[in-house]
Design a protein around this nucleic acid. Structure first.
Lengths: 347, 347
DNA sequence: TAATGCGTTCTCAACGTTTCAAATCACACT
DNA sequence: AGTGTGATTTGAAACGTTGAGAACGCATTA
């Protein structure tokens, strides 16, 4: 038998109204259970709507209400454990508040960030959550953010933030936790604590570096530039790391991310150092790597999911509680990072 | 000086029209450079629009055109390397075609999958790309997918697919590549190749298992149930793995994901086995783990990014080339997985 | 009888855009 | 002056929804 494929095209208020011989607004109100409408009519309309599986058109509602129930998220990279967990937090919280999440990836590029932002700023989303691309931070150009906030569109920055824009922010206590990590290493009787970091235009790297220095200072250990290794963000040359370990006396390392940590730990082991007996390692980001590498890596958990939730909550707050029109007030929330002790430290 | 914060509220065609004393449609046409409009007027309008940074309202355009330029992506989990790479492929390709991506995470839950889908199906997106949640696969209930396709909304399934729904699909050649991997192991003179897998309601696991079996068969090796270890998808008990290695003669292992592989490899090493001399390991998913673990893990790259691109391309194709109204035709694309040889195999 | 009130329904405008069809205008040609 | 032509501009409807206000029928009240 030849089965005609029936396309159940979306049904609208108008269809229902026509079919039932009532006006559109009657249908609209009946479906909202308005008590302007008689019981009879309501039942009739609701039954019909259910039968034909009526669902209101979100776009039309958005146009009418001037709000989309969409949140725009712009992050530098999605294939990255930290961002991914933050995203999960955002998506999760947003869902409970009835918001959808539109994600754009800037790919660490300034231009893409700007394009994505403009694309979404024209009515597609009610607000933004973002973390700055590397290039944006290097350039120090935030005109696109300024433009958005000036239009009254709420913005929440997280992790990679800037002081140049007035908006809500969520960060972790990078400096403090680095301080704590290094202090712990020193307390374990490590004398030569190295730092493996990235170029400092990431302000997070800078803060972590400050924590590192301060811990040395407090412990009365002289800061030694030779104990600092700065690596590019991508394209890492293992030989640089090898050279570093071969020519420097090191008994502990703090790394600003888990890749650096795992890589460095592997190389140190190859060179015959025992972990943690000879060298201890602490990384940032509690991802799969830290957990499954052998020995497992002591790491600083940034609680990305919590960060994402926090950011989403702050954003929705701003979206829904319209401008109290006085001078807008912004705040910066600090998520407390924690150290997860595993096998790469201790003594 | 007290600086009044000026909210540059979005400007519309109506504002421009009123300001310039022309009609709305004139403004609309002038901005589109229509040649119905005089050069004078066009210049005037365009200059004004530029000055006040006019940007058309996407929502209004969506309502008018009945298309949102949004793609809905529903995946089981975002904190997962494979899905993350697929997403990157989607986002990337979609961007080049002027589409935005709305992501929902089903969290392996059937209900969430349904809710997300319904939420987006009411006009928020022009089509869906999705990978089924574990629960959906276990239940074998696809009513929500059916409903969407019956409404004429294009759908592309990837990786975790089902035969019960007619739509475009993108998968990898799971069976073949597993066959190839195991054959390679056998060619390296491995006699006792184990398989570490998940419950088979993931059809991908099933296919991989079939490839495994077939390779044994072709090599004339008897299938031995004792060489199969089935682990739950989460909450893995390391002792189960330890027991497995202690009580079974094994000289090679194929794992259906990289976590299983890394975990198993670590435990095997602890038990005194050398990798790859005594036992070789091959995993699925070319993520950070495989790359950075020591010894680095030979793995099957699923080319998620390519898969995502493919899926996005197929979807946009369907979205833009309206129903040719004959019987709709669907296809299934197969992305070729490849084996990335690293240090955990060889002889 | 006329006024008031209530319950119910309808009309209309609005959100911001596009586009078809119609109107207006300037100008040239009979 | 009348007609035709082409260039330019405008009006109105439409997309699907909401909500304020008008209108209707009917019953109660003054």
């Amino acid at each position: 038998m030849y089965l005609q494929q029936v396309l159940k095209r979306k049904i609208t208020l108008k269809h229902i109204a026509r079919e039932l011989g009532v006006s559109i607004s009657t249908v609209s109100k009946a479906l909202k259970n308005s008590n302007e409408i008689s019981r009879d009519t309501k039942e009739k309309v609701q039954a019909f709507a259910k039968l034909y599986n009526y669902k209101p058109n979100n776009i039309a509602i958005s146009l009418k209400n001037k709000q989309t129930k969409n949140i725009g998220v712009i992050i530098p990279n999605i294939v990255h454990h930290f961002f991914t967990t933050v995203f999960r937090g955002i998506e999760n919280y947003a869902g409970t508040r009835g918001y959808n999440v539109v994600v754009c990836v800037s790919d660490e590029s300034f231009d893409k960030e700007v394009i994505n932002m403009e694309m979404l700023a024209n009515g597609s989303v009610d607000g933004f959550i973002m973390s700055l691309s590397a290039e944006t931070q290097a350039r120090n150009d935030f005109a696109h953010l300024k433009e958005v906030t000036e239009q009254g569109i709420p913005l929440v920055l997280f992790d990679r933030i800037t002081d140049n824009i007035d908006c809500d922010k969520v960060i972790i206590n990078d400096k403090q936790i680095a301080f704590k990590a290094v202090s712990t290493l020193i307390a374990d009787n490590r004398k030569h604590v190295a730092l493996i970091t990235t170029d400092t235009y990431f302000n997070v790297s800078r803060f972590r570096g400050e924590g590192y220095k301060e811990a040395l200072q407090v412990a009365g250990i002289l800061y030694d530039e030779n104990l600092i290794l700065t690596l590019p963000y991508d394209e890492i040359d293992e030989n640089v790391i090898r050279y570093f370990f071969q020519n420097t006396k090191i008994d502990a390392v703090l790394c600003v991310n888990e890749i650096f940590a795992v890589l460095a730990m592997g190389i140190a082991q190859e060179l015959g150092h025992r972990v943690p007996e000879d060298i201890a390692f602490i990384g940032f980001t509690d991802g799969l790597l830290s957990k499954y590498v052998r020995p497992s890596l002591t790491t600083i958990a940034q609680h990305g999911e919590k960060m994402g939730e926090m950011a989403a909550q702050m954003l929705i707050e701003k979206i829904e509680n319209e401008p109290i029109d006085e001078r807008e007030t912004y705040c910066t929330k600090v998520i407390e990072a924690t150290i997860i002790e595993r096998a790469s430290t201790g003594n």
